[in-house]
Each structure stands twice: as C-alpha cells, then as structure tokens.
C-alpha cells in the first residue's frame, strides 16, 4: 500500500540511531577543533593534574597531542597524553 509500509521498523530504528550518532559525533569533533590552542587542564589518574595547550586528537580519541605541558617536574614542550590516563579535562570558551 503506502511507501512507509515498505520500511521495516528495524530500518527506521537503524536510521534513527545513525542520525543520533551523527549528531553526537559531530558535536564532539567540533568541540575538539574549538579546543585547539586553548589552555586545557587535565585531571589524570593517581591525582596527577597538569595543564597544556591543546593541539589535536587522533580520531579514535586514544591520544591527545599537546604543547607546553606543565608537569609537577617542569615543562615538557611537546607531549602526547594517553586518553586512558585521563579522567577528565576542562577549558573555558
């Protein structure tokens, strides 16, 4: 009969999930782009807190490339942070 009856509920559900995933992912990727060159604080495991200028993330969100990392033992000019070491990060917009 109607076109919509050709679309199974499963297809509709799948499309809704895909659209949701697009919105969520796009917003997150844009936030990472907005973070470039900003000072960011990182709360890491073992109560380690550091700040750095954010550079970029890989797309699997496993590594953050940062500059001017202020560590408890001094400044490391260029660094990679493992996302698995990080509990949370924050910056101002």
């Amino acid at each position: 009969s109607s076109l919509s009856s050709l679309v199974t509920p499963n297809t509709a559900e799948l499309e809704e999930e895909q659209q949701g995933r697009v919105l969520l992912r796009e917003r997150y990727l844009r936030s990472l782009l907005a973070m470039a060159r900003q000072p960011v604080s990182f709360a890491m495991y073992e109560k380690v807190n550091v700040t750095a200028l954010f550079g970029a993330s890989d797309i699997d969100i496993l590594n953050f490339q940062v500059s001017e990392l202020q560590t408890p033992l001094g400044v490391q000019r260029e660094a990679l942070l493992r996302c698995s070491d990080i509990i949370a990060y924050s910056f101002e917009l």
Partner: peptide, 16 residues
C-alpha cells in the same frame, strides 16, 4: 603535528 613536533608520551609509563 606529530611529524613536526615529535611529541613524546607523558608520563613515559602509563598511569593506568
């Protein structure tokens, strides 16, 4: 950025 700046992991040993 990684090619240009050659960043090293910090900390060297993973915390977790």
């Amino acid at each position: 950025n990684c090619d240009k700046k050659q960043p090293k992991y910090w900390p060297v040993i993973p915390l977790k």
